[in-house]
Write a protein that binds this DNA or RNA. Structure first.
Lengths: 329, 329
DNA sequence: CTGAAAGCGCTTACAG
DNA sequence: CTGAAAGCGCTTACAG
């Protein structure tokens, strides 16, 4: 690879002046500038990012910590983050943590040793102290981390309220909530929203925990439907869970939406590929990723920040798993 | 951050001997070693990866170039790659190229300036010259790039043959193939396999191009079903395309699998979430990603390589969109 | 306006 | 067995 020395030699100047024209910083005569620029062209010189990083202690990279890219909620998020990062000249390092503290810590060290400029945290359930101790710019995405760091979430509780009210309006009398893991803030908030509506309306209900895996959701729902044949509505904490519930309903010969109405949560693309297509609470996934990235970059570049708390609105999308939903979109 | 100098001072030795114990290279006395190790502990010292990279010209990072992580074929691939990379101590940089040469080139430069050790190429349709010119370790994944670089693909043609024969066996008399973009090798090979079977069996057929977007696939299929009411089988070039076809069938009141049988390609998880669940040709996606990563690392570490061509087998998974398919898996 | 020098944090010949 | 020195490829005070 050609280095700044080669360019200097070719342009018959010192490396200092090459550096000056590279960074457009400090005075440099027209002649010198031209000589350097032509040398750069001729030699097809690209400055070495690593050397720059070593000096500046800033790498232009951000770490993305998510539980698992193959969980269908995350690809769109990752895409948004990568797009937003690219736009600002940053590059993203993908880290799948499986929500394991050990993996998180491993990545955190690896990232820090590489001078990443910041990290987006969409993972981790309990202690975040190891992040805060780092004094590395961090933003929380889809998870509340600390009020000392910018956080982007969607309005989980309001979304859950809308979903549950929708089921009530559609005539459900006995509603199940398949809630996500306890201790996971979004799951807890959705649960809260559900409970609030069902209690103020005095609707019979039953709440069961299921993780975000389709198999578990299917099994749990099957058991539930067999035990409680009068269940006529299900609000799930994710779209994947809803898909599991739909499979169980199919197995148990329950017709959707006639016998059983279902509302999911997330708004990932496959909800609309299902038949019947899934009524769901749509999170603005792309915007969440984009916003989180912009905030992180603001933090990195030490720009001012209006607010640390960014709660984006959700939207109820009625499709065919609740009554009166037209065709597919 | 604490540096090697701090450690040296604390241990009362030179930085050279600190470096020696860090790298377990060269002679160092027991006493010195212990002093250094304890200093490292006390100071919680982590060697700076950037400085090492500058010296060694190797960063422990690999670039992953894919068209779009939000296309459901890629998350599992990315996960496999990240897992395999992690196991060998590498870190992965995510690059979404949208199959645009400009973006590819941008990333390639960015990656090279950061001394990435190699790249996995699962993108790009035409010229790959800019890669080869780089003399950077590269492996091709899901795309043939050049016979000079290791390549991992699945057996697209055989998979397509199995799919088409399955439709023929199940009694289809007029089969449509929704093929992927021309010029994209996997799509071309699947098309070849389809054609071969349909021609040797003398089965009526019609071939239409659709990209891998669900909306296009749905629209195309709808038109097709209206124009040719006797179509009774569809083989699609991807599972997403199949989902589109299924939606169109639903709209056109065609019952699957009674009136119309469908076989997809890819074996991504959502195929099994659909109702009816999708019969498809499963690619060993995880293994493909894993293998590609292992090959890349072999290349990087200059180990010997048995073969440059790795074609992994596909498997036909019969589910409910063809006759006689049991329940869901 | 320009160059020599020191420094970012490490590694590795080279002497001793 | 150990340290001083040069070097990886840049950047930026500091003199001039």
């Amino acid at each position: 690879m050609t280095t700044i020395k080669d360019v200097a030699k070719h342009a018959k100047v010192s490396v200092a002046t090459v550096s000056r024209v590279l960074n457009q910083k400090g005075y440099v005569s027209k002649e010198a500038k031209q000589a350097v620029e032509s040398a750069i062209k001729v030699l097809n010189y690209k400055p070495n990012a690593v050397a720059r990083t070593l000096y500046h202690k800033t790498s232009g990279m951000i770490g993305l910590m998510i539980p698992d890219i193959s969980n269908p909620f995350f690809p769109e998020l990752a895409r948004a983050i990568e797009d937003a990062a690219l736009k600002e000249g940053y590059t993203v390092v993908l880290c799948n943590t499986d929500d394991q503290v050990k993996k998180e810590q491993h990545y955190l060290h690896a990232l820090q040793q590489k001078y990443v400029d910041g990290v987006i945290l969409a993972t981790g359930t309990d202690s975040y102290d190891h992040y805060l101790a780092l004094n590395l710019p961090v933003v929380g995405l889809d998870r509340f981390v600390s009020n000392k760091i910018p956080t982007v979430v969607s309005d989980n509780k309001k979304g859950a309220i809308a979903a549950t009210e929708h089921l009530v309006e559609k005539g459900c009398q006995f509603i199940t909530h398949l809630r996500g893991p306890k201790g996971l803030a979004p799951a807890d908030e959705r649960y809260q929203g559900f409970k609030e509506v069902v209690e103020t309306h005095g609707v019979a209900h039953i709440i069961v925990e299921a993780d975000f895996q389709i198999e578990r959701a299917e099994a749990v729902t099957r058991g539930l439907l067999q035990k409680h044949p009068t269940i006529d509505g299900i609000f799930t904490s994710s779209d994947v869970t809803a898909a599991g519930a739909m499979k169980a309903a199919h197995t148990c010969k329950r017709v959707i939406p006639d016998d059983l109405q279902i509302v999911g949560f997330d708004g990932i693309p496959f909800g609309n590929m299902l038949v019947p297509s899934l009524t769901t609470v749509q999170q603005p996934i792309y915007e969440m990723g984009e916003r989180a990235t912009q905030l992180l970059i603001q933090l990195i570049e030490k720009k001012t920040m209006d607010s640390y708390w960014h709660e984006l609105p959700t939207t109820l999308i009625q499709r065919q798993t609740t009554r009166g939903g037209g065709g597919h979109e």
